[in-house]
Design a protein around this nucleic acid. Sequence first.
DNA 1: CCTCGGGGAGAACCGGCGTTCTCTACCGTA
DNA 2: TACGGTAGAGAACGCCGGTTCTCCCCGAGG
Lengths: 184, 184
Amino acid sequence: MDSEVARDRALDAAEKLFYGRGIHSVGMDDIRSTSGLSLKRLYQLFPAKEQLVEAYLERRDVAWRQRLAAHVDRCTDPRERILSVFDWLRLWFLEPDFRGCAWINSYGELGATSPRVLAQVRAHKQAFRAYVAGLVADAELPEPLGGQLYLLAEGAMVTAGIEGSAEPAVQAGLAAGLLLEAYR
Amino acid sequence: MDSEVARDRALDAAEKLFYGRGIHSVGMDDIRSTSGLSLKRLYQLFPAKEQLVEAYLERRDVAWRQRLAAHVDRCTDPRERILSVFDWLRLWFLEPDFRGCAWINSYGELGATSPRVLAQVRAHKQAFRAYVAGLVADAELPEPLGGQLYLLAEGAMVTAGIEGSAEPAVQAGLAAGLLLEAYR
DNA sequence: CCTCGGGGAGAACCGGCGTTCTCTACCGTA
DNA sequence: TACGGTAGAGAACGCCGGTTCTCCCCGAGG
């Protein structure tokens, strides 16, 4: 089997299991049986579990931000683009296997013990915040709004995960609309 | 030694270690050496680690909400009381051992595997949200504002933990002020 | 046909940790 | 002094899970 394909299968299994059940509750044997790869192959691709974890977070980071951007790009009006972020959050929250933000969860699990995971969490969040700030700048709105909308989005993610509901995205979207008005 | 005192020492150690390093990275031996209790005594008080975790979250829940309420009660004006929530968050974030919200972190670590911890996280967050909603009702402001302020606070907690900064409390407080104006 | 390298299956190893057990010291009491 | 009960220190046990090793098959090349 091609090495690329094997890597994808390993990462598919890792994403499904790590995101769904948490990282430390998933063993390499679980990754093996879900991916269909042998342990030997797995350890050829990722010499240790931590590297599999890092690769999982990295691949998901790229995919997550691409999906968000693709949704936002369906709008052209700068204000609509801002509000469509919360629209997309709602769609994400509604996915059946949604279980909160993978990076916030990883921070809770490994933030205190794995500097590399902590760095990835920070990088992901900074990228998201920069993206929101870019949308705000495109709409020629004042800069502090970016951070405030970012906090609303983070609060919605955390709450949607804990409560298992998509409602926080709606609430956050309403608040975002009010803030846009306030800064008009 | 009095059983009450021993229980307090165990919970002091549990809180310091579980909150500071995460739950699964702390062993019962760490609890023993930090608390100064013998393993035998520890297991008399808490028959299993999970019960120590639950007691830790429960005690911290009571203390956290008391501290918040005590700060808010220093104001009488209903609007100031609302904004003082974010004021208190900033003070909390500035504490030297601050490492994010204990319940959000616990959700990341155990939310998928421990129904009892998940229930405690939900109960704590519901209590906090109800508290904020009560402040909003006291100020005779419309009900949706409560959920929006709650999301801002959650976003600030998560971001302050990940970034290691108290700034999110200020940003969230500014956004809260704008929302108060918007609903005036 | 023989050989040899790579890969798969799963056992084996080993350290960590939750939990229990053993041994000993100590203290109050007859 | 003898004794029973309690508590502490820490070894022991058992399981789990990350990592490595063994054994076997198979396919390519001579």
